[in-house]
Nucleic acid binder design. Structure first.
Length: 826
RNA sequence: GGGCGAGUGGCGGAACUGGUAUACGCGCACGACUCAAAAUCGUGUUCCUUACGGAGUGAGGGUUCGAUUCCCUCCUCGCCCACCA
């Protein structure tokens, strides 16, 4: 008898699938379409790791299941090739990122195929290829033309030695990654001009559509919080002895007469004019600068260490007669709201800050309880509960519930002319430019006469020049700043001398639209064909264990933008999104290269267990949302299961033809159809672990039945075919081999999914549980269609149950059809 | 600090809308095959108790004939966001 040897059959079927293009999708097919994919892969020299094995197997199972069930199923593949790691490697090694990718990507091909993933390789894409990023640049142009791309100055981390901008991940303990010695300087902040996409224009639209998405709930919530819509008012206050008027946003303005001081962010642009004319102006500004730097470097670590500097200025209060001192505080943020806050006794931070610096506080909202109210008046603690708080002033709202009067208070403030209503968002505009070499060049030309000029569409792509040296140019620009031949161009408008923009586009743009390029990857005339995209979008199933906010939100934004351009119809890119858990090491800690506790998928495959056992284990170990914990015994366990299925088929093939008794046939069919039902439903609903356990149960049942009843017979043929089909999404190689062993010469992976027949599950007699006072006492067999009276009599007649009923009065009897009988006795 | 989720055998986990708690797998024990081992096959495996029986889903309370499931209080762990006014 043949032994199950994955190392033999896996390469064989890999070659077969390649040759027959089994997984090539016909996008014009009449079949219903299904598009499944996992988040884009960033190729690195390390190859695939166990997290990739997890992610891509999840979407592969889904794609295979649908392909078997008669869908035209497309499981695309591609590479998110631009990005900082490849550039850093190029700077260190001198090997160009283009060359690195040319070597790395073919390695991935082999690894993906070894994993048995059913990708359509004819439509492979890579974001660093000009034919792809031509359209990434086109998106920038369209944004620009529609007023959604603009330039602005922002603070960036800066290394004085390299004269270059640093990404957050390039800062190590406050120093540049390349200059982190004891004598090297700390990184500094510097204003740099940046390009932005106006995603905030879409904030409400993106927010409102979230509720209807079939996505993992935690991700939907993360997106809502990220957008962070809050309704409030903006106060206007004049500053004493100046011409200035400051504005401050407040979402909690109910106790508005409690405001006693003003907080301004240390990096606020208005700060300089605010202290203009004061004696200690310079000291104040430099102290503020220090505070700002410290905060952005130390980040959350500086939390709790609230610091303040008095500006020397006062705002004129709109309600009381005492001026409001203006303080620079470490907790006010320049780019949320207006960067200035009116502060009161009803905010934890304001309260704490005022106590620390001895600033006057004036509570105007108290709890209903008189004793507690007294404590709040005496500043014993900070009371912030607007829902339950009662206002004590001003006169027109005194005694009212703060939250209840919110709308009227807002209207009141507006009518007094001291404030206006405002909706504010946490979400900022999307910073899309990077002072980096390895990205898609921004298609802008700077002309002395004409200013910023868009590269005309017919001149796209602006091809990234190949260089020998990837060091930043030393003037704040990337290596592109030195590529003079590329850099100097004629202005498309006036023909005069001009220079190309040297910033490249954020890689999140590359990955914000790739799912649509998959549908028309070789189109040279258009970003994609609208008809094909309208047929195939949205992506039916999308999964990943990262990027809950940025990537998924940017993709939603760009998709919506496409619908405004009229090039596609559906405004949402991903119909269903599963946020799957990550694989962790057997001790529960995360896998990491530095710890050396990683598991190499290819090593496991080659050690003799095969890709099928690895895939099956990963999908079986835990619910997809949880994230599996790596168990060294797990893959051997999955292998044992696959081996038992293998044995069943081999023994069946060796068995003589013969009859199967009616009882045995029914038992085989019951096991089969119970399995079909559960596996189908469970895969559909992303419960892969219980789908596999259902297949295991069927194999165990058939193992028992085969002892006395195995014969070449339709019942067994049907059972084994069904099992092979149901296991095929998880263990595609084994399934293909066994499918052919069972006499087929086509692929099991296309259009073969068993049909569930309910009639095989119906039984004549059923087992009911007998309870006395809710405790299990016995079990009885009754006819499936027995009526209540018969069931109760049978239960009472049961010996074990009767023993517990003896001498007691039955107060109540509960019959749950098909389940149980419960006697309540005293 | 805020939000979300989860606590079930030695371990990963299962349990449909409140109805036999611990499916399936791992591990372990015993048996079969073998000169032997591995592999494979079979049986058993929540705890206490010789047994009858009893206890039991993080802790405590509640609703119910009946609670892993619903409600309240508390504890622990994980993830995400984090000075957002």
């Amino acid at each position: 008898m043949n032994r199950y040897n994955p190392n033999e059959i896996e390469p064989k079927w890999q070659a077969y699938w390649d040759e027959h293009q089994t997984y090539h999708a016909n996008l014009n097919s009449d079949k219903p379409k299904y598009l499944a994919m996992s988040m884009f892969n960033y190729p690195s020299g390390a190859g695939i790791h166990i997290g990739h094995a997890m992610n891509y197997t999840i979407s592969d199972v889904k794609a295979r299941f649908k392909r078997q069930a008669g869908y035209e199923s497309y499981h695309p593949v591609g590479w998110d090739a631009f990005g900082l790691p490849a550039e850093n490697f190029a700077i260190k090694s001198g090997i160009s990122p283009q060359a690195s990718m040319a070597k790395i990507i073919p390695d991935y091909h082999k690894q993906y195929k070894a994993m048995g993933w059913s990708n359509d390789w004819q439509r492979e894409i890579a974001t660093h290829e000009p034919q792809y990023y031509k359209w990434t640049q086109w998106i920038f142009s369209q944004m620009y033309k529609h007023g959604l791309a603009y330039q602005d100055s922002r603070l960036q981390w800066w290394c004085e030695k390299d004269n270059t901008v640093l990404a957050n991940e390039q800062i190590i303990d406050g120093k540049c990654w390349r200059h982190d010695g004891p004598d090297d300087p700390l990184v500094q902040q510097k204003e740099v001009k940046q390009w932005f996409f106006k995603i905030t224009d879409y904030a409400d639209e993106l927010l409102d559509a979230i509720d209807d998405l079939d996505w993992t709930e935690s991700v939907k919530l993360a997106q809502k919080n990220w957008i962070g819509r809050s309704e409030g008012i903006v106060y206007k206050n004049k500053v004493r002895d100046t011409e200035l008027e400051i504005e401050s946003f407040s979402a909690h303005f109910e106790a508005f007469t409690a405001n006693t001081f003003v907080a301004i962010a240390p990096d606020h642009p208005l700060l300089e004019s605010l202290v203009e004319g004061l004696d200690n102006k310079d000291e104040t500004l430099s102290a503020a600068q220090k505070m700002a730097n410290k905060r952005s470097l130390e980040g959350p670590k500086a939390l709790g260490e609230m610091e303040g500097i008095f500006t020397g200025r006062y705002a004129i209060d709109s309600f009381g007669d005492e001026d409001l001192p203006i303080w620079i505080t470490s907790y006010a943020i320049a780019d949320y709201g207006t960067g200035i806050v009116l502060c009161s006794a009803h905010d934890e931070r304001d309260f704490e800050f005022a106590q620390k610096y001895g600033i006057r506080l004036k509570p105007t909202m108290v709890p209903a309880d008189a004793g507690e109210a007294e404590k709040v008046r005496n500043l014993e603690y900070c009371f912030t509960d607007m829902e339950n708080g009662l206002l004590i002033e001003p006169q027109e709202f005194a005694g009212e519930n703060a939250a209840g009067s919110r709308q009227r208070i807002a209207d009141h403030l507006v009518s007094l002319g001291v404030a206006y209503k405002k909706v504010n968002y946490k979400m900022r505009d999307w910073s899309v430019s990077r002072q980096r070499y390895w990205g898609a060049p921004i298609p802008i030309i700077h002309c002395e006469k004409c200013g910023n000029v868009l590269v005309p569409d017919e001149q796209l792509p602006v091809v990234l020049p190949e260089l020998d040296d990837f060091q930043p140019s030393g003037d704040g620009r990337s290596a592109l700043g030195r590529a003079t031949e590329w850099l100097n161009v004629e202005c498309p408008t006036c023909g005069g001398p001009a220079e190309r923009e040297t910033d490249t586009l954020d890689t999140y743009i590359c990955s914000s639209w790739y799912m649509f390029r998959y549908l028309d990857p070789r189109n040279e005339a258009k970003i994609f064909d609208s008809e094909i995209v309208n047929k195939w979008a949205p992506v039916d199933f999308y999964n990943g264990g990262d990027h809950a906010t940025a990537h998924l939100l940017y993709a939603r934004f760009v998709t919506r933008f496409f619908t405004k351009l009229g090039i596609m119809e559906n405004p949402e890119p991903f119909k269903q999104m599963l946020f799957n858990g990550k694989v962790s090491a057997s001790d529960g800690s995360p896998f990491s290269k530095s710890k050396g506790n990683g598991v190499d998928p290819l090593e496991i495959i080659n050690s003799g267990y095969g890709a099928d056992a690895l895939r099956t284990y990963l999908m079986f170990a835990a619910p997809l949302e949880f994230g599996a914990r790596w168990d060294p015994q797990g893959v051997p366990g999955a292998y044992r299961f696959l081996n038992r299925l293998w044995t069943l088929v081999q023994e069946y093939n060796a068995a003589p033809a013969g009859d199967v008794s009616a009882d045995a046939a029914r038992a085989v069919r019951q096991a089969t159809h119970r399995m079909i039902y559960k596996v189908t439903l469970d895969i559909e609903e992303n419960r892969y672990n219980t789908a596999i356990s259902a297949a295991m149960t069927a194999v165990n049942d058939l193992f028992k039945l085969k002892v006395d009843n195995l014969a070449k017979h339709d019942v067994w043929q049907e059972a084994l075919e069904a099992l092979v089909c149901c296991v095929a999404p998880f263990a595609p190689y084994l399934a293909e081999e066994l499918w052919h062993n069972l006499g087929h010469d086509d692929s099991v992976h296309v259009d073969h999914w068993p049909i569930f027949d309910e009639s095989f599950l119906v039984t004549d007699t059923i087992t009911l549980v007998v309870q006395v006072n809710g405790k299990l006492r016995s079990q009885i067999q009754v006819a499936a269609d027995a009526d209540q009276e018969t069931i109760i009599q049978a239960a009472q007649a049961d010996q074990k149950a009767a023993a517990h009923l003896d001498g007691k009065e039955i107060k109540k009897t509960i019959v749950v059809p098909g389940k149980l009988v419960n006697f309540v006795v005293i």
